[in-house]
Design a binder for these strands. Sequence first.
DNA 1: CTTAGGG
DNA 2: CCCTAAG
Length: 647
Amino acid sequence: MVLQKRLDYGFNGYQVPPVPRATRSARRRGFFKKKHEENQICAFDLLAIVAGKLLLDKKIAPSSSNTSADKDQCAVINSAVKNKWQDVEKSLKVEACDQGSSDNNIYVSDLSHVHRQGCSSKESLVTQNDLNLGLASALTKPDCAERSNAERLVSGQTKNEIGTFASKAEGDSSEYREFGDCKSEAATKRAVKDEPHKSGMVQSSTVVNMCNLEDPVVLDAKPPALVSSDSRAKVPACGNHISNSSYPTNQDDLHVVSRDDDENSSGCTHPITTKKLFRPAPRIGDRRIRKFLASKCWKVAPRLKDATVSNSDGNFKPVFRKRQNCYRHQRSERIYPFKKRKHFAYSSPSNSDGGTSCEFVSDLSLKGSNGDASVSRSRMHGVKLRIKSFSVPEFLIEIPESSTVGSLKRTVMEAVTAILGSGLHVGVLLQGKKVREDNKTLRQTGISHNNQLDALGFCLEPNPSQTPPSLSPGDSPFLLQCDTPQPIRRYPPTTGEVHQDICADPEPHVNNLGNYIEIPAMNVEALAVVPAHQKSKRSEIAQRRIRRPFSVTEVEALVHAVEKLGTGRWRDVKLQAFDNAKHRTYVDLKDKWKTLVHTARISPQQRRGEPVPQELLDRVLTAHAYWSQQQAKQQFKHQQAETCLLL
DNA sequence: CTTAGGG
DNA sequence: CCCTAAG
């Protein structure tokens, strides 16, 4: 029981995913059960926990950092483990490393060559941070009290740290997770190789475990700042090699070798030894993430509990993933125009942490008027707001060095436009508190010319109810216009929907413009509603992939493959003709075929984009007709068989 | 996961 | 290109 409970935690702060929600389709196929099994912790993880404790102990008492002591300790642990869990993989054990003087030279080794999770033969233990170690340690302690201690550790005062950590995983190293762990591992290994003696190297992921890395890689437990962006940019993803070998030469195969950015920056340095153990899963990782992020769950800030949720979607469990092959890591979406930073936690109801998505700095000059023309109300004051600029929420872009400056500009522009065009709205803050009552007047709220205006702020935040507008510049009224010194729009002060437009210039009625009272400029400091370092902790949401029109070459490859394989085998088409084009999924190919058929049917004048040679379009129609016929035949046969059975 | 089809 | 239902 206790054991079971302990197993709820991974050794490094990651949690073992809970039983996944049984979705309809999952249940249908018993997938749900499988998933659950998949999530079960294994002996390896146990040992990792144990080893985590070792590391912790060594951290606490560095003097004991040498190998003989380690070995003793390991021996004790191993025998204990053996005692307790005789049935589980005995071949696993904790080992002390002979080299290395730091406190990291303990790892879990797996004497059997193939680990259940596809782990490599020797897994180094990457310690994320002291907190994780603490957790692991506490969890390793034998009694329940200690365990709940650990849980308190998680939910209590260190929650924030965990949250930080979790979101860091979501944020900083999201690419890694998103595109698979191989990449991060490659990064890790490489970084360590390059500078083996430097400590505090890498760590974006948890355990070096997905690729077959032969050497134990020992990592430090320091925060991940040191290498991060560099290595991320440079380090190739694994796995280009899997592809070709799987389809033994078909001389007329037409492989599209994409020359896209991601290819240039990839190319694995580590040979993959496990080839095609499973069917490639082109979209699982990021797909899941995106699904998760795009789902309704995203409004919750990534605290520990939510990390659990993430787990169920496969994001946080590098150790536990079973069907891992590097295929997915070379997948298509390794380069987004920008990484999912568009939305941050959707405004939680609390004022203190109102989900403000964006830092806002403005210089507000407020002017009031003493004039009064309103009949039903008392005097009316105008408040003039001048907003110098908005900060765009943080986002990441990744672009190869070989790109042009122009394309960099375009990429950034695209990202910015997408952010602004995606349904943001504006929040108003006064004294750091969110003003939610849209119907209150400014004066009622306390925003007036003669009131304390030292802390009026605005923030951009996601507006879920709003459908993303198009990306045309006109749709981003705030950014594009707010820099204009002159007020852009006018709203009667009573309109209420202040948040609809930052540039609201609720000037009083024209006949009131008598005496403006200058109000001192706002304290800029107070207007920075959200400290910059907080925004990166926000959960992210999926971003639409960049549009990548098919080239004629690609179309030709597609046509060719479909001619051969038919219209119902997109996975095969992908494998055969687009295996190297990582950004093309089989769904993409299917969609492209769909549009090709459509294109072929419409008149040339109505076609857009790079013209597809008519010859190809003809072939499209031919192939489409042929395979449709085939399908119809098949169906007919099936139906006949069924009716025969019935009769 | 893959396929099919609507959006 | 996305999403989802359905194999």
